[in-house]
Amino acid sequence: MAENVTPRVRVPRDATAGEAVSVRTLISHPMESGQRRGSDGNLIPRQIINRFTCEFNGEMVIDITIDPAVSTNPYFQFDATVNESGTFQFTWYDDDGSVYTDTADIAVA
């Protein structure tokens, strides 16, 4: 597991039914491309977040496949439709098998 991996997410606290709300996510991660050389001249092995998903109450909002060209501390912004109150489930998949998760609740009137 990469060190100090901290996910951060931001969604509105409330919304009206059927509204498209803006979701932002950021995770601290080096996104080591596997193409960079260390000070010893050897390639530093690749270690990236290779997939990110966001679900709402178990249904998919977005599923992103990620390559090494996504920057350090991967950032994503997208919209989600919310028809009812519930919970966003965010999942980041690391090359080394680690899985990082976060959740956020939203009240829908």
Binding site: A20, F56, E59, M60, V61, I62, I64, F78, A80, T81
Partner: peptide, 9 residues
């Protein structure tokens, strides 16, 4: 980016 059924856009 693969958009799911709940993608707002």
């Amino acid at each position: 980016f693969n958009f799911g059924p709940l993608a707002g856009s």
